[in-house]
């Protein structure tokens, strides 16, 4: 059976799996960006407690594997009375992991804003919150978008791990199809191509567009 016949026969399951992968990707991306912003700002805070907890969070999530974190959240958290279903456990683990990597990007982006901008905001009597929201963050965002593009690809790849806690994503469906048909080359080959198309023709162009859009908004294009 060649790969085209394979796709024609199994497309509903591949499509369902791809849908689940995309859903996990979006939820994890939203959570990851929120955590990255929070932790990145906390790491720059002058409050020792805030800074300490951000550093701890970042080191723990960057120092261990995503798979370890995923299993821990799924198998161990219920023992603490915090039972979460596999769908939630999946995107929460991936999002928290990516958030830790993103926090470093946020921090770097904020530090890359020229000092004069901070002083100017101070000179026109802005509050720290105003300064961050209206002057610093928009410029930091433009600076840090290119590495976020790579991180989003890592995020997409990371979602494949949720199949190991039986979330029915593309990876999971592929494994199931392989288990019942033994058409390994076709099944895994088709999945490889789908992931590649998602990464190369959806995620990357979107991030490029976002970069150009933000640069235009900032009058830098």
């Amino acid at each position: 059976m060649n790969i085209f016949d394979f796709v024609i026969q199994y497309w509903p399951r591949l499509l369902a799996g791809t849908g689940m992968t995309v859903a996990q990707f979006f939820l994890a991306a939203v959570l990851g960006v929120a955590i990255a912003l929070l932790m990145g700002l906390m790491k720059l805070s002058s409050n020792k407690l805030l800074r300490g907890s951000a550093v701890t969070y970042i080191e723990i999530f960057r120092g261990t594997s995503l798979l370890v974190q995923l299993y821990w959240i799924f198998f161990v958290l219920p023992l603490f009375g915090l039972s979460i279903d596999k769908f939630t456990a999946g995107y929460v683990a991936v999002g928290m992991n990516i958030g830790a990597y993103g926090a470093e990007l946020v921090r770097g982006g904020i530090l890359s804003v020229p000092k004069g901008q901070w002083e100017a905001a101070l000179a026109i009597n802005m509050s720290p919150a105003q300064r961050m929201r209206r002057i610093i963050l928009p410029q930091a965002l433009v600076n840090m978008l290119p590495p976020w593009g790579n991180l989003m690809i890592e995020l997409l790849k990371g979602t494949a791990l949720v199949s190991l806690i039986s979330v029915a994503d593309l990876m999971f469906e592929t494994k199931q199809i392989n288990g019942s048909t033994f058409l390994s080359a076709q099944a895994f080959g088709a999945a490889l191509i789908i992931y590649y198309v998602l990464a190369r023709f959806m995620v990357t162009p979107f991030m490029r567009w976002l970069e150009a859009y933000m640069a235009r908004k900032m009058g830098r294009a």
Binding site: K157, K175, F182, L183, F188
Partner: peptide, 23 residues
Amino acid sequence: VEFIRSTPLLLQIFFIFYVGPQF
């Protein structure tokens, strides 16, 4: 290089492990 970098390692592990025996 682009292809390998944009697809999940987990899937590549499965691919190499299961596709070999087919051939």
